[in-house]
């Protein structure tokens, strides 16, 4: 991923900044500026997610693309944030310990390194929270 493409999304990737529709209360991550439920009567504003959630489903990645190969095996999960939206994220712990229903919280970590450019990408991973 190019540096510009990554930096553009830094507020969301580093700080879990999304949006919420004040009309209906629906939260969006990644952020949307238009509420598909309320449409023109929606009132969408910035919202910082608490970063806590629950594992919906998971796997252990054992064969990855070149950027992630040095991390294998690693746990990957779909996490339902407490505000509602679901995201895909790595869980930092013994991969075999991840279970459906497990409580997790966001933490700032190195995501990947681009060997060619030397750029290191950071973002939000999740750790057990119980």
């Amino acid at each position: 991923m190019s540096v510009a493409r990554f930096w553009r999304k830094i507020p969301q990737r580093y700080n879990l900044i999304g949006t919420v529709c004040k009309t209906c209360g629906r939260h969006f991550f990644p952020p949307r500026s238009f509420c598909p439920d309320c449409r023109r009567s929606g009132n969408v504003v910035e919202y910082k997610f608490k970063g806590t959630g629950t594992v919906v489903t998971h796997t252990i990645i054992r064969t990855a693309s070149d950027q992630f190969e040095d991390l294998t095996p690693y746990a990957l999960a779909i996490v339902q944030l407490d505000e509602g939206p679901r995201i895909t994220a790595q869980i930092v712990c013994t991969p075999e310990d991840v279970k459906i229903g497990m409580r997790v919280k966001g933490t700032f970590r190195r995501i990947a390194a681009d060997g060619a450019s030397g750029v290191i990408y950071y973002g939000t991973k999740y750790v057990p929270d119980e």
């Binding site: 998971h58 796997t59 992630f68 990957l76 895909t88 990947a112 973002g123």
Partner: peptide
């Protein structure tokens, strides 16, 4: 929001299987 965090294509179908 999938590939960037380390999701592979088999990994996504694996999460369907789980």
């Amino acid at each position: 929001w999938e590939g960037f965090v380390g999701a592979t294509f088999p990994g996504l179908y694996a999460m369907i299987a789980t």
